[in-house]
């Protein structure tokens, strides 16, 4: 592999940030640990969401479905199988479901895809509830000796993997194909790109990561039930954070995740009934004020700065 001159500092900087992130548990503060966990979780989810949705402009609301399947995989299997194996199984299930959904819907228009994915979490939730009712259960206890610190570190590790994957895809033919598809799918098809395969592959990546995240977080919930594991709000949070940051860049979602997590924590502790309103306003802000997210603002700012330097 050949690295360009800009790549090495960027990689070194990313490694440094990850290293710093991994040191958070040393602070020993439970408030920061809670925030850190949320940020790590949403970074993983939003970044992997944007890997698919950034270039293709398909809005997926299926995150909660994949996430919930991940937590349920652990809930059902933690007594008989090792935890790491369950994460891998969850990831495989997530990828498989995403593959099936993608094959069925990604050749259709964007509206159908949104509705389909929105319904998917609800479908899986209703089916799970129904099956549990048949067996007379409401939920599961997930009792493990895995603590917050381990979960946090696993999420940071997963985040590193997601960023690395995104970076590699961006440099690959697949990444190039996705950029072309995002610009004009008709041109892509007439240039010999199998657009359906490219889209399904990327959707599988995001499904895989979301399911793995759900699996990793399962021990934290202790008790899991369908309405918790498949909470539709999660899908919306992920979309908002990714779009707020800017899905056009690999690091874009991260820029949205950090402020939104703090905002969310503040609102849900002081005004727990207003969270829906916050989500709604966030959507409107994105559409009307920040169509390219914070990344757009930053890039415009840089552009202006450079232009001014040029004239000076």
């Amino acid at each position: 592999m050949n690295l360009s001159r800009d790549d090495i500092p960027a990689l070194a900087f990313s490694a440094l940030l990850l290293g710093l992130a991994a040191m958070l548990p040393l602070t020993g503060s439970s408030y920061w640990m809670g925030i850190g966990l949320s940020i790590a979780m949403f970074t993983v989810l939003s970044t992997s969401w944007a890997l698919f949705s950034g270039p293709t402009h398909y809005i997926s609301l299926a995150t909660a479905a994949f996430f919930g399947l991940g937590t349920y995989t652990v809930g059902l299997g933690f007594e008989s199988l090792p935890f790491w194996l369950l994460i891998i199984i969850a990831a495989a299930i997530g990828a498989a479901l995403a593959g099936i959904v993608g094959l069925a819907t990604l050749r259709l228009s964007g509206v159908y895809f949104v509705i389909f994915t929105l319904g998917l979490a609800e479908l899986v939730r209703q089916l799970t509830t129904w099956v549990q009712n048949l067996t007379g259960q409401r939920g599961f206890y997930v009792l493990t000796d895995i603590g917050e610190t381990e979960i946090y570190l696993m999420l940071v590790g997963l985040a590193a993997l997601v960023f690395l994957t995104g970076w590699l895809i961006g440099r690959s033919r697949l990444g190039f194909a996705l950029r072309i598809i995002g610009d004009d799918e008709e041109v892509a098809r007439h240039s010999g790109i199998n657009t359906a395969r490219a889209k399904v592959l990327l959707f599988m990546v995001s499904g895989l990561v979301a399911a793995a995240t759900g699996a990793i977080l399962a021990p934290r919930y202790v008790y899991i039930e369908p309405s918790l594991a498949f909470s539709p709000i999660l899908s919306f949070q992920v979309v908002i954070m990714a779009l707020l940051g800017g899905p056009g860049r690999l690091w874009g979602p991260l820029v949205g995740v950090i402020p939104f997590t703090f905002l969310w924590e503040a609102i849900s502790s002081s005004f727990p009934n207003q969270t829906t309103l916050v989500l709604g306003i966030a959507f409107l802000v994105i559409v009307y004020a920040l169509p390219r997210g914070f990344v757009g603002l930053i890039e415009d700012g840089r552009h202006r700065l450079r232009a001014r330097e040029g004239y000076a």
């Binding site: 964007g110 919306f236 207003q274 829906t276 309103l277």
Partner: peptide, 16 residues
Amino acid sequence: VDSILATFGLSFVAVG
């Protein structure tokens, strides 16, 4: 995409 996001926004604001 814009109308999906905007009407989702409206929907959440209305619910809120």
